[in-house]
Design a protein around this nucleic acid. Sequence first.
DNA 1: TATAATTGTGTATATTTTACACATTCATTA
DNA 2: TAATGAATGTGTAAAATATACACAATTATA
Lengths: 246, 246
Amino acid sequence: MKIEDSSQQKKHIKTLQAIQTEVQSTNKIALSVDCVIFGFDENKLKVLLIRSDLKKYAGKWSLLGDLVLPVEDIDAAAYRILKQRTGLNDVYLEQVHTFGKVNRHPAGRVVTVTYCSLINVQHHKLNIFANELHWHDVKSVTSLAFDHQLIFENCFQQLQKRVQEHPLGFNLLPKKFSLRDLQNLYEAILDIKMDRRNFRKKFFAMDFLIDLKEMEQDVPHRPGKLYKFNYEKYEKKKKKMVGIDF
Amino acid sequence: MKIEDSSQQKKHIKTLQAIQTEVQSTNKIALSVDCVIFGFDENKLKVLLIRSDLKKYAGKWSLLGDLVLPVEDIDAAAYRILKQRTGLNDVYLEQVHTFGKVNRHPAGRVVTVTYCSLINVQHHKLNIFANELHWHDVKSVTSLAFDHQLIFENCFQQLQKRVQEHPLGFNLLPKKFSLRDLQNLYEAILDIKMDRRNFRKKFFAMDFLIDLKEMEQDVPHRPGKLYKFNYEKYEKKKKKMVGIDF
DNA sequence: TATAATTGTGTATATTTTACACATTCATTA
DNA sequence: TAATGAATGTGTAAAATATACACAATTATA
């Protein structure tokens, strides 16, 4: 039974009951969320994976996900997974894409909404104690379970694009960071090398970094200054890009 | 019943049966797609809307949507709606975002995946015959049914952003267009004025326009040259942007 | 106290973007 | 058929931005 079919049918105002009957009786699909959780450690971009819990994919790694509960917002489901898996409450989380091929999941029709999360691996509350949970260098992620390889690559590309347009990257760093840390981060995410002087010039010109008047500790060379990102100032001044370029 | 709960639980490999039981018995949610269909007519950006078919929203306009069938890819559901509503088969269509608040739909739990579509209102196959279907100037869209105002605005913003980075806009124009048409299109989508000479310079420099050696007809002034977009060349040469800017 | 390593800084050049004016073409109409 | 109106087609100078590149200063370590 279709709600609306041809463009020739007569006008009809549907009652809530009629719709409710449809919604409750037919067309129900299992819905899950999958989180691509990124971290930055030892100057490498990492992703948090778990061993697949399906026999079919035994030995393969997969993203962290779960079914959405019937009375749970989908964003809330993603936050729940993050909390369960990392112990962290306030993390950067953004919806990326929804994957809905009929046969994407072996257990039946499961549509999954994917999220990209960025966490600071040095956060004091972070606990990755669960069995089978591990950080993987993004470069070594090659054949995940289900369609998770596709999902991961989609999410990673989105990250690479967005990190250049918005101040997301800071979520991966400690609150206090050096300009070298920041450059290493961008180089790891984008997999490129950048000129150190021009990188500094660019960030200082933006004028969103607050000089904390502190220095790095325990480095075996001249220590650099520490900074934090000025989100308030960014929110006020952020530009709306205008410029056709493709 | 939760599939996975704490991070302390013991390792367990779930069977497909166990998962299938969960998927089939619980956690089912109705899934719909909603299409934001844009057109360009009389130098204005338009969106195709239908009168709401719910009493609760009688008199309000809403986006074109439908439930996803149990054995239908979500992309296929979006294409189906476009075909049903416009008669068109091969149109630009891109997923934008998924809206999944528990109470977003009065009939119960319905999560909706939204799509942005761009169509050429001059396409010879286009037929908007259905009752209650109308093109609305995007500037006049103010209080749609359900959460469709939110969905529309999200989609429109995404369009404004993407049209600057990718050659989407041509989907809104006839196959042959003048540079003035193209500029009017960008000005309508972005709601800005652009310098005519710099606009031309920019597009000629990209070198993706093919001069058709034809002129506009029936204009009450000097006719302009007609062009088409060279998608093959674009696909070969498209750049990957690198440059932090926010 | 000399060395190794990395920070911090400035300038010149190339590229890109912006601002801006006039001659040309075609349709219309006087 | 000549004059007018309206938009097309074109180039250059100035400003802003991005790139390439080298050396002195600081700290830890040997």
